[in-house]
């Protein structure tokens, strides 16, 4: 089993949570961590060049976004550890996740009653999310909705696929609980 963890080491909470989750991923099999603080990649331009010009490869100059796709396309799980911003991932994390488009095909299919893209490779990694630092309970709810919607792309709704450190709680204190959550998800 291969697990890729995406996190921002410039953030203390993310470092603490990453340490706990990486240990779980190591026990489950092959694990690779991707630290977004190293580089802010170019944003996806929505040009679809990765579908219509260089199929499967982003047309942007090689950067951290390219490397992220190369490391994660064959993962069984991608675990994103992010500060919650407006109920979604933080901007640097989102800059990376937007770059996953080359792993999809332009063609459509129906999945769970909704239109989706076909995967370019045999499967889409299951996208799990761990969020912290929400500004309100509403942001926590939106984060769970966002995380579930992303998993829906692969047809894996999995209600338990996101873990939120509640507002005001310490990431350090809950890192053990968070690790237990990931252990259960990887064992499913």
């Amino acid at each position: 089993m291969k697990t890729v963890l995406l996190y921002d080491s410039g953030d203390e909470d993310a470092r603490v949570l990453h340490q706990a989750l990486r240990a779980v991923a190591n026990r489950a099999g092959e694990a690779y961590s991707f630290d977004v603080s190293r580089e802010l990649p170019a944003s996806c331009m929505g040009c679809f060049g990765c579908w219509t010009k260089t199929p499967g490869l982003c047309v942007l100059p090689r950067d951290g976004g390219t490397l992220y796709v190369e490391k994660s396309w064959d993962a069984d799980y991608i675990v994103t550890i992010s500060r919650i911003l407006w109920g979604a991932f933080s901007m640097p994390i989102k800059a990376y996740t937007d770059r996953l488009i080359p792993t999809m095909l332009p063609g459509f299919k129906r999945l769970n009653g909704m239109m989706r893209h076909r995967p370019r490779y045999d499967r889409i990694p299951v996208l799990l999310s761990c969020g912290y630092g929400a500004a309100s309970p509403a942001e926590e709810k939106t984060f769970n909705d966002f995380s579930r919607a992303q998993r829906d792309q692969g047809g894996v709704a999995r209600e338990t696929g996101s873990f939120v450190i509640p507002r005001g709680a310490s990431s350090q204190a809950l890192s053990g609980e968070c690790a237990k959550w990931l252990g259960k998800e990887l064992a499913r």
Partner: peptide
């Protein structure tokens, strides 16, 4: 680019959270 407008629901929720913030 998907058929159903429902694909946009979460992004509108995020915009609402942005305004509140």
């Amino acid at each position: 680019g998907f058929y159903e407008g429902e694909h946009c629901a979460v992004s509108l929720e995020i915009m609402q959270r942005y305004c509140e913030s």
